[in-house]
Write a protein that binds this DNA or RNA. Structure first.
Lengths: 187, 187
DNA sequence: GACATAATGAACTGATCGGTACACCTTGAT
DNA sequence: ATCAAGGTGTACCGATCAGTTCATTATGTC
């Protein structure tokens, strides 16, 4: 039952890393912002990178749960849920602290493809792809694998474009494109 | 004519920052890899961030020149050139040292939207958007502004997906989606 | 040959980096 | 009352960070 303190550390570290970046955030700042002593932090995690991996695991769980739930709340059929993904994204982009995708940023700061942090980020994207493919399949759409990857290209594009901030409403641009791509996969 | 040394510094610093990341690269490493003494570096640029801005300016020039030229080489009509963008991207992704988009990474490491580095990155994307919009207009396609933004969403998505590396050929997935989006904008 | 300009190497500053050492405190179960 | 587990605060380690100082060396112009 004493998992609490460790969980709190990871939860608050997530916010700090998300807001501040990985290399730009020192472990002293993490300690200060989580309220957990450096000594304890290093009892739970041997290195900073281990902590980041744990943070990404939590982020993966949170984000996928949120996105899947929101898609189901916004639409009833699998086909409509695929499109609703972009309305969910629009909500996310509108949040005050929106700072892009944590996994894209993580893989940008830890670039070697065999680095645990990079791998963890790629795994997150793979799990998303599997879920969306399954949804496209249930919607009886042609070539569900390709379709899922294409919808996710639009998603990733919208995420980084929303973060760059040079464009008004990338989520709705993506949604319109998604409708057209989805039409092309309808027999 | 003595612009040479400064140019060489910026050119080589670009490689170092691209390969290594921004925060992860110290100025001592930049000095070592460029062969320019730290003293000289700081005569040309007051701060590290000033150097990074100069690097991004060069990158913007190089990348836009390369992409526009390649699109023209690969296709004759504006419409075909829009699609050829994704073949050009595929070539880029296949290069040995491919490490994603320098501007996405820069804006991820300098997140505040009014930071000069973030601004510079957003400006690069805006200039791309203007060019692609113009091309869509010359191709007599409906709603060229929206179409351009949608094609660029696919481009950004393909860039980050290629860097994550969990997918086979994001450039061709994007190209297929682009064809469908483009069809929808054909009257 | 004198002179300004540009560049160099190397040592240095104070701050911060990731990570450790150590002595102390709190908690709950026995 | 005791004991172990988990947590704390503080000071510290050597390395590296961005940026500076300074004396020296090329370079080309007049």
């Amino acid at each position: 039952m004493r998992q609490t303190k460790r969980d709190e550390l990871v939860r608050k570290a997530l916010e700090t890393f998300y807001r501040n970046g990985f290399h730009a955030t020192g472990m002293d700042l993490v300690a200060a912002e989580t309220g957990v002593s450096k000594t304890s932090m290093y009892k739970h995690f041997r290195t900073k990178e281990d902590l980041i991996v744990a943070v990404l695991r939590l982020r993966d769980e949170n984000f996928r749960n949120w996105l899947y739930r929101r898609m189901e709340e916004l639409a009833d059929t699998p086909r409509e849920q695929l499109i609703a993904m972009f309305d969910a994204l629009e909500e996310w982009f509108a949040e005050p602290g929106y700072k892009g995708c944590m996994f894209i940023k993580a893989s940008s700061e830890y670039q070697e493809s065999d680095h645990p942090i990079h791998r963890q980020s790629a795994d997150h994207k793979s799990m998303l792809e599997a879920h969306i493919t399954q949804l496209a399949d249930r919607a009886a759409l042609a070539d569900p694998g390709t379709l899922a990857r294409q919808l996710l290209l639009l998603k990733e594009g919208a995420i980084v474009t929303a973060h760059l901030g040079h464009t008004d409403n990338p989520a709705q641009d993506a949604k319109a494109a998604a409708l057209q791509v989805l039409d092309a996969h309808t027999r």
